[in-house]
């Protein structure tokens, strides 16, 4: 679609190329992220921890403190585990750009190796959830039907029935999950970033987490009935009924009522 658009409107080519590049980066990242994850559970080398500590002192210690114990407003990182770092830094939420109701996702500030090093350092501070393996997050191995049942009970109230996102109080929100990588989905469940609650392995077993990932893998803009209208429910349907339906019908009525020239 976007390539077609580029051919039709030459002026927009640079923007589209940029988009394509971003998409490519995202895709590459999706492929690469689990590989780096593999390394984490295996005992990280002292080298990696050291690199991580340097990165931490340079980029994170201003807020989280030199010993990573945080302050009243900033959480301690002792015991959050490598999964939390891989999620927060990998989705660009950390380092935080500005204060706000919650940290926003943005392009990641560090490369794979740096993130792995940071994760290794934080994991060395105290035991916490590790970065999941490829197999743990492979949608093909999950049961989407069970995933849907679990998603409905545990996630849909904030993230919407198919993961399109939703509002929380005071400007916070639960993000759309369609573009989130399986590894990040898993890490978010395991660590409870921002205001999201924690779903540990007793609440949602690793298999159940994978089922949820399998369910989300089926979701997106595609709907059997046509354009998905953002999967936002009756409000967007009502808006479209007025804009498209009543718009076309009133236009037709005006045509019928107008005198032929």
């Amino acid at each position: 679609m976007k390539a077609l658009a580029a051919r039709r409107h030459d002026r927009r080519a640079p923007a589209v190329l940029l988009l394509l590049a971003l998409l490519l980066t995202g895709a590459l990242y999706a492929v690469l992220a689990p590989t780096s994850a593999d390394a984490a559970p295996a005992a990280p080398s002292a080298d990696q921890v050291e690199t991580g500590e340097k990165l931490f002192q340079a980029n994170c210690a201003t807020c989280h403190g030199p010993d990573a114990t945080g302050t009243d407003a900033v959480p301690s990182l002792v015991g959050v585990g490598a999964a939390a770092v891989d999620f927060q830094v990998g989705t660009g939420r950390m380092p935080m750009q500005m204060n706000g109701p919650q940290a926003q996702a943005k392009p990641a500030q560090f490369d794979e190796e740096q993130i792995a090093a940071l994760a290794a350092f934080v994991a060395s501070l105290g035991p916490g959830p590790a970065v999941p393996s490829d197999e743990q997050v492979d949608p093909a191995l999950g049961d989407p039907a069970n995933g849907m049942a679990l998603f409905r009970t545990n996630c849909a109230m904030c993230h919407n029935a198919v993961g399109a996102g939703g509002a929380l109080s005071q400007g916070k929100f639960a993000p759309n999950l369609w573009e989130t990588t399986p590894a990040h989905l898993y890490e978010a469940m395991a660590t409870g970033p921002q205001n999201m609650p924690v779903f540990n392995d007793a609440t949602l077993t690793p298999d159940e987490k994978r089922d949820i990932i399998a369910y989300l893998d089926l979701q997106g803009e595609d709907a059997p009935g046509g354009i998905g209208l953002g999967s936002l429910g009756p409000v967007s349907e009502g808006l479209w009924a007025w804009v498209v339906g009543m718009g076309l019908l009133i236009a037709a009525a005006v045509w019928i009522g107008a005198r032929s020239s």
């Binding site: 849909a156 904030c158 919407n160 939703g166 009756p234």
Partner: peptide, 12 residues
């Protein structure tokens, strides 16, 4: 038990 964000009725 479940509920989803965007729990709204039709427009009318």
């Amino acid at each position: 038990s479940p509920v989803s964000a965007g729990a709204q009725p039709d427009w009318y």
